[in-house]
């Protein structure tokens, strides 16, 4: 896993956004059910994975998991197996979705990355909750409406940010030194 200066810095600023959305509660949308909140906290992870590749997604997933673990007030998210472990994967799945479709349609690929990321977050976290025995499968079905809301939001945000950013990049020259040094 080779990291360039650009990857390091972009990971860091996206992690900062992730932490900021978490501590200010702006990343959470109150929903009345067991999980308590629909979250857009995963979006920096998907955006990082799309813009800079899976290693960035993996690191951001870890930081997202860590901040979710440290800031959790719900017993099941104070369990690293629920809050950190599944999040390691959610930066990798959107990247795979993105590179699979990128050749056909860039915008569609961004949207798919957001969708796949959000769905894999839901599936892995809920899976971990069930495996650890906090709730049963039937009790977890109540998260479905919230999972749909999260998926829609992350698609919108991923497409909006990635499309806007990549257009900006074409206009202004960006630093290329980091590509040379490694």
């Amino acid at each position: 896993m080779k990291l360039t200066t650009r990857k390091i810095v972009i990971t860091a600023v996206l992690a900062a956004i992730s932490i900021l959305l978490g501590v200010t509660r702006l990343g959470y949308i109150p929903v009345p059910n067991v999980a308590g909140n629909a979250t857009i906290m995963g979006v920096p992870v998907y955006i990082g994975a799309v813009l800079e590749g899976w290693p960035v997604g993996l690191i951001l997933g870890f930081i997202f998991g860590l901040s979710s673990f440290l800031g959790a007030t719900v017993p099941m998210f104070k369990d690293p197996i629920v809050s950190i472990l599944p999040r390691l994967l959610i930066g990798i799945t959107p990247y795979l979705a993105y590179i699979a479709v990128r050749k056909k349609n860039e915008i569609l690929a961004y949207g798919l990355a957001g969708l796949v990321g959000s769905v894999s977050n839901t599936v892995f976290v809920v899976g971990a909750i069930i495996l650890r025995g906090y709730f049963t499968f039937h009790q977890m079905l109540v998260v479905i409406p919230q999972a749909i809301a999260e998926a829609i939001l992350s698609v919108i945000l991923t497409v909006a940010v990635c499309a806007a950013w990549n257009r900006v990049q074409i206009g202004s020259g960006r630093s290329k030194i980091s590509n040379v040094t490694d």
């Binding site: 390091i8 810095v9 990971t11 860091a12 600023v13 992690a15 900062a16 956004i17 932490i19 900021l20 501590v23 690191i59 930081i63």
Partner: peptide
């Protein structure tokens, strides 16, 4: 990465 991220949280 962690150092830069923590530094940027108040800025953002």
């Amino acid at each position: 990465i962690m150092t830069i991220a923590l530094r940027f949280v108040p800025t953002f």
